[in-house]
Nucleic acid binder design. Structure first.
Lengths: 177, 177
DNA sequence: GAATTTATGTCAGCAGTGTTGACATAAATT
DNA sequence: AATTTATGTCAACACTGCTGACATAAATTC
């Protein structure tokens, strides 16, 4: 009763690599890339007493001005309560304003103020610098591959949503020549 | 006193697009891609009472068996206490074992058990499927562009760390022909 | 050999962001 | 008039990050 212990709690000393054809490299690259990608705005946000959730709200309100609360929940895929906290803070601090809907007066259309627009630019600038650096030297074809990949990682049902965001050169997912 | 209100809390109705050359498209693609990329394992983890942090620990212990607690903290860039909670649970549930270091008996080398290895495979399988789908139809050059991009998003100081992970075809970051 | 440093573990408390369920109001729809 | 819809709010909880403090054992230094 030394080797045979019944339970298989023996340490495995071999690294896992391409077991079953799994892309561990890309899995961890996604982790590292996203972590560092969000680290720049996170630092700025912390100075303002905000978090990553505030960035997302400011981002989409600037991208889709006039969207309603329900639409924002749909894009972010979070619950009403999760949004309520951060949205309230952004309204109280004058980054976002609510405008009663014209057709439907129950709706609250969300718009950025000048302050909210500038805030998003401050947050997005370091991310954009990082992206430019990562794309430096890439050919047009390479850039297309990268965008196609990122879009391919998104759940198919939601890709249409992405195509409807402004300035997206959309519909280019089916680059099957 | 209608247009001039002093405070600039007027709603801005224009979407932000390529303002100052900022890549809002890629910024939001990163958000959507990462969110959906993590959603598959998150669901599985929830069934086991675990969270995303457990996945990360199981991942790197399988990738770098025998790494010490300090090394794991270095890779994950979190604090001891953040790790302690999840690591304890993974040890208690028999996914990971600690082995006292040979050279330095203060060190705890971390190894996956068979259970821990199988658990990682279960978590990684749907992610790998998603990655394969997103890479489908990509040329070898396109795949290189994608990996180069993800690596380029990581803070330069940490890229060396990535190269030392197993099965990485590393050092290929400087593809300057 | 004694003092210090290092690797790890643990306790207590806090913050940010996600969750659920319940309930309230006003406006639109039936 | 009754119901549904869009929004807001309250309470409570989970996960994962953080800080600061303190304890132990082993290695290192003086």
């Amino acid at each position: 009763m030394k080797e045979r212990k019944g339970a298989s709690d023996e340490p495995i000393r071999m690294p896992i690599t391409i077991e079953e054809g799994i892309d561990f490299s890309i899995i961890e690259l996604m982790f590292f890339a996203y972590r560092d990608f969000t680290s720049d705005p996170d630092e700025i946000l912390a100075d303002y007493g905000f978090g990553r959730a505030h960035h997302r709200v400011v981002h989409f309100v600037n991208r889709l001005p006039g969207l309603t609360v329900a639409e924002l929940l749909e894009v972010l895929q979070i619950t009403k309560q999760s949004l309520a906290r951060v949205l309230k803070q952004l309204i109280d601090t004058g980054h976002i304003v609510q405008v009663q809907g014209l057709r439907d007066r129950r709706q609250r259309e969300l718009y950025p103020t000048a302050k909210g627009r500038n805030f998003l630019l401050m947050l997005a600038r370091p991310q954009s610098r990082r992206i430019h650096a990562a794309l430096e030297g890439e050919s047009a074809a390479g850039r297309l591959s990268i965008e196609r990949f990122l879009k391919g990682m998104v759940n198919p049902e939601l890709r249409a949503q992405i195509d409807h965001l402004p300035g997206n050169m959309s519909g280019k997912d089916d680059g099957k020549q």
